[in-house]
Amino acid sequence: MSVKQLAMPLIQEQINELRAGDRVELTGWMYTARDAAHERMVEMVQAGGTLPVDIAGQTIYYVGPTPAKPGQIIGSAGPTTSSRMDPYTPVLLSLGLKGMIGKGSRSQSVKEGIVQSRAVYFAAIGGAGALLAKTIRSAEVVAFHDLGPEAIYRLEVERFPVIVINDICGGDLYQQSQSL
């Protein structure tokens, strides 16, 4: 199976071509955010405020990287369980979020939101945080500094390996693999 090379931020034409099970390597810029940052972003939106970063057309990686050792850009950067972001994801999708990276399955409401928003959910390899960190070329905290590793980072990645789990057609790799 071939690996698709995609540049970020993702464009809709790229997303439209992706199907559950596709192997992808991402290159470009993405944001990170975990539970606390998601909760804070949704609270800001619900209070009528604006987000500290424009997520329209962007990809969020669900990761809380460990501190970098001397000479490293970032510490271990493995995915966290995506379902913890599910209560907040529909709001972010409605604001134009186009890609999400994590591990594990998503709720039905998120899967429906992915189809409606024409977005994509990727899985990264759990337990491979040190390997994934090697694809990160730069990392900068851009919001919620007080959250430490759960702050929002802007990452530049090169050939970051993921697999499409949920696509714009309602495809779900986890469900498909269970029916084999």
Rank of each mutant, 00 (worst) to 15 (best):
V42C: 01
F160C: 03
I165R: 09
Y31N: 10
V162T: 10
S138Q: 12
D22R: 04
Q72M: 10
L51E: 00
A37W: 12
F160K: 09
S82I: 15
V120L: 00
T81Q: 05
Q72L: 04
E43K: 15
D22M: 00
G104M: 07
A133M: 12
L18G: 02
E156S: 14
S109E: 13
K134M: 08
G127D: 08
F144Q: 13
R23Y: 04
L93Y: 04
M1E: 09
P70D: 09
T80V: 11
M100Q: 09
D172L: 01
I55R: 02
R154P: 08
G21N: 05
Q108V: 14
L10F: 12
P87G: 04
S179G: 05
G127C: 09
K4W: 00
Y121L: 04
G170N: 06
A143V: 12
A124Y: 03
T27P: 06
Y88N: 05
H38R: 07
S76V: 12
L131F: 09
E150H: 11
P52G: 08
K111Q: 10
T135V: 00
L18Y: 01
T59W: 00
D54I: 01
L131P: 02
G49T: 06
V42S: 01
A56D: 03
G48W: 02
W29C: 13
P161G: 07
Y88H: 13
G126C: 14
H145F: 14
S107W: 08
Q108I: 14
S177R: 15
Y31A: 06
I74P: 06
G102L: 04
G104T: 02
S179A: 14
P90L: 05
I15R: 02
G49P: 08
S2Y: 11
R159Y: 03
M100D: 01
L10Y: 02
R159M: 06
R159P: 02
S82P: 08
